[in-house]
Simulated scan of single mutants.
Amino acid sequence: MRRARVVVAHRAPDRPPIQVARGETVMLGERDGDWPQFVWTTALDVNAAEGHGGWVPAALFDNPSGLAIALSDYDTRELDAATDEILTLHHELAQWWWAQNVLGVQGWIPARSLELLDDTTDDDPSDPTS
């Protein structure tokens, strides 16, 4: 499995993450200034709080704006990570990695915050289990 070292600390935004399910209808708003491939996505579920939304890659919808249908599942949860922390990387999407820390906590972290390590790099070469 691929690993990376955090070179720039990352903190998740102070808002609850949203989950978008394949086939779900959502409202798409503005594009992110720093990450133009992301669009502000508001859940239309009657159980969701008014205006509850998050940034989702626009490529995951059937429309570029307005009402759209999700083409796949997506979770906006981001991962808090400190500089020099080693993370396990699962998959990349729109220049972000779905990563896991040593405690098993998972979430998105920007690729620009990471230094990719060689797949065969061991933290402790004397440890035969690493």
Rank of each mutant, 00 (worst) to 15 (best):
A43C: 07
D80Y: 03
D124I: 15
E115Q: 15
M1W: 00
R11M: 13
W96D: 02
V6N: 12
N47D: 05
H52N: 04
D45G: 04
W40N: 00
R5A: 14
D80V: 09
L44T: 07
V7P: 11
H52G: 00
G33N: 02
G107P: 06
V8I: 13
V20K: 09
R77D: 02
A59D: 11
D45E: 08
R3K: 12
R31E: 08
D123R: 13
R3M: 04
H91P: 07
E24F: 10
P57A: 05
G51D: 09
P13K: 07
F61E: 01
S72T: 10
A58Y: 00
T25N: 11
H52D: 03
R112Y: 10
Q100Y: 05
D14P: 03
D14F: 06
R15G: 02
F61R: 01
E30A: 15
G104K: 07
T120D: 15
A99F: 04
V26K: 03
L89R: 06
L44Y: 02
T76A: 04
D80P: 05
F38P: 01
H91K: 14
A43Y: 00
T88W: 15
P57Y: 04
G29L: 00
R5I: 14
P17H: 00
S65C: 07
R11W: 11
W40F: 06
E50L: 05
D122K: 15
V56E: 04
G54Y: 02
